[in-house]
Design a protein around this nucleic acid. Sequence first.
DNA 1: CACAATGTGCAGACTTTACTGCACATCATG
DNA 2: CATGATGTGCAGTAAAGTCTGCACATTGTG
Lengths: 126, 126
Amino acid sequence: MTSFTPGELAVMQVLWEHGELKPAEVQERFPEPIKNPALRSYLKILVDKGHVSRRKVGKAFLYKAITKRNSAERSTLRSLIDAYFDGSTTNLILNLIRREKLSESELLELKRLADEPNKSAAEKKK
Amino acid sequence: MTSFTPGELAVMQVLWEHGELKPAEVQERFPEPIKNPALRSYLKILVDKGHVSRRKVGKAFLYKAITKRNSAERSTLRSLIDAYFDGSTTNLILNLIRREKLSESELLELKRLADEPNKSAAEKKK
DNA sequence: CACAATGTGCAGACTTTACTGCACATCATG
DNA sequence: CATGATGTGCAGTAAAGTCTGCACATTGTG
């Protein structure tokens, strides 16, 4: 059950996007201003929990995400669906479609996917 | 920005589903076993935050959700979409459709909705 | 009235998150 | 080798979230 606090998630986002970084580099790319020690505190927590690895390069450490973005995304979606959509992904999809005004191309894409579910499933891993 | 802690959310779920309840009734319907004082502690927090109202009936209080399920659902979805789908609801929809194997009837419902977006959009607002 | 059953108010304790501060380590370079 | 820039380790504070304990209030029934 992969779940992150807001602070942890923000750090993971940066690492997912940029790969292997030093603390100061994560700090620069952080969505809001954050002090270096605060940022390092998050990194330590994530390393302790096993979501991030680090290796020494020169005098500093490089940090890298171990937990994949896709995995975190799925487990977050899972709990949202359980909490609000009776555990049914289809309920969520229908709800979103009803709520959203989709552009022409988006509708076409949807119809294409709806028409060819097996094909899209097959090409998931290329 | 409506957001709940796990404990608060569990209480809200019970109230959303069952309407107006006494603490002991919420306790009975709670997803896991929970002691009465712990449960009441959650109720108090939710009342203090304005998400739940209560009124005295006999010697006890009846608790009722003020914040609507729909509203909490939306703001949770919003942060999930911002965190994992570039802020695009359509990205989420496409991702879900690609990931999910849908049944025949679900596909038909999807196609129907995709074909008549204006109708469903029109009857929502106004 | 007495009393058990049911409920309430409230003061906490314990845990997890979120952050701060500072002394010490490494290293290029003048 | 002295120094300043850059990093690290670690202790500690503060606030939020979770949960407990217990004294007191209300009500139905004998």
